[in-house]
Design a protein around this nucleic acid. Structure first.
Lengths: 236, 236
DNA sequence: GCTTGAACCTCACGCCGGGGGAGGTCGTAG
DNA sequence: CTACGACCTCCCCCGGCGTGAGGTTCAAGC
């Protein structure tokens, strides 16, 4: 213990020496010392000084409130552990990606970070949970396959746009149907799914440059494609 | 994000709007926004604003420092998780004890807390580790058996003291030998063990009232017994 | 008795990551 | 023209102490 901590406990009224020497030095009695031991032990378990004061003052002979406090603390620790586990998984994922690439894009880690933030800005927590569920259901290879398929759709769409096929054409509308079906693998069905898809579109529109930068196609071509798909969707 | 947080980032120089309207309102450009996304993502991973500033300013195109920072953070999270695990085990142990007792001593939880603190005051960390090892080696029943045996020794000692047998008597010295042999099951051998035993004695002498309060025998009788044992130890 | 160094006292500011409010200005919709 | 919201600056607040500044007091050694 440092002296300063004892002074602090004194200031907030948690533990004050019940005697003073004539010169004003704090004299801690044996009772004070026992209280100090309790304070220290409870602090070491992660409780706040306020909670400690509460349980030591309010219910000296009530072990029930003590049990409640400890179970509450256990719950908090569980939540904390879960949060830490999540952060560890995320960081490990980022490090794996950083280790993998080593390719032509040294800025990819940063871009991923930006996307993480954007993602959390545009989707609510429950939407993110559903997306994660879907992703888990598809499995690692499923997600990879979907990415591959999507790349094919993008290529196809870019060819349609650049060869001047109008958005009302059946080929464009068919592409939109396949596009949305593919997206359906990630977005849930029904009204919730519609909201998720709307969020995805908002995210794309507000951040197309951002997202486009992380894609293997030039941003402006992608932007054109998205506008084209939107037209085709209206038409069909 | 709250406005106040943006102001804070501005104050500490982490992120400031690169433009202002004539009226003085902050205008965040797209570059600012990208920086903000990075800041938010890194903060969400648990990094401090200072670390974030360091990695964003110092090494914009150096993914190596980024990897280092993330691995360091991973280590910190691991340590944190370990600490949390320890606290959870301790609290669960306390709750188990509190659930068990329900007996005549409602203050036992508090006493245990005091002893935790005393224990950590009087033993160094390595000593505590060795004690825990020994305890594990003995196993749950071993510890219970030792407690039982110790209770027998205490009873025996109290009888010796109160029937006036001198400390130099062979029966007292024999008791001391068995006492120390029993303690040897918890304390390591050799010089380290001697230090641990010395720490245990110091702890006892400074806190006999404290420890005695948690024992099923009156404190003053125990204190007398300990003095008696010390005499016998000197004698034999 | 005197000195000296350690330990104590009070008072007050600092840290981190912002929260919240007071008191005032700006922007825009009806 | 008038609301009403959004923004501005300035300043104090939280927890759990750390770290001084500047001044007593205590215990040991001469």
């Amino acid at each position: 213990m440092t002296v300063r901590a004892l002074h602090h406990y004194d200031e907030i009224g948690l533990l004050s020496a019940s005697e003073r020497t004539p010169a004003g030095h704090r004299r801690y009695t044996e009772r004070d010392l026992r209280r100090l031991y309790r304070v220290r032990a409870l602090r070491a378990l992660g409780l706040s000084l306020e909670e400690i004061a509460g349980v030591l003052d309010g219910a000296a002979d009530d072990p029930e409130s003590m049990r409640e406090l400890l179970t509450a603390q256990l719950r908090r620790l569980d939540e904390h552990a879960e949060l830490i586990g999540m952060l560890r998984r995320r960081i490990r994922g980022l490090l794996r990606q950083a280790g993998d690439s080593s390719g032509p894009d040294p800025d990819r880690l940063m871009t991923t970070l930006e996307l993480m933030s954007v993602f959390e800005t545009y989707f609510t927590e429950e939407q993110r949970e559903r997306l994660a569920e879907r992703r888990n259901a598809l499995g690692g290879e499923g997600v990879e396959a979907a990415k591959h398929e999507w790349a094919g759709l993008v290529e196809e769409g870019l060819r349609l746009v650049e060869s001047g096929v109008p958005a009302e054409d059946e080929r464009a509308r068919d592409l939109v149907r396949r596009w949305d079906a593919l997206a359906g693998g990630f977005h849930p069905d029904g009204a919730d799914g519609e909201r998720t898809r709307a969020a995805a579109r908002r995210m794309w529109q507000d951040n197309s440059a951002e997202i486009g930068g992380s894609l293997p196609w030039p941003v402006e071509r992608m932007a054109g494609l998205v506008a084209y798909l939107e037209q085709a969707r209206q038409a069909g």
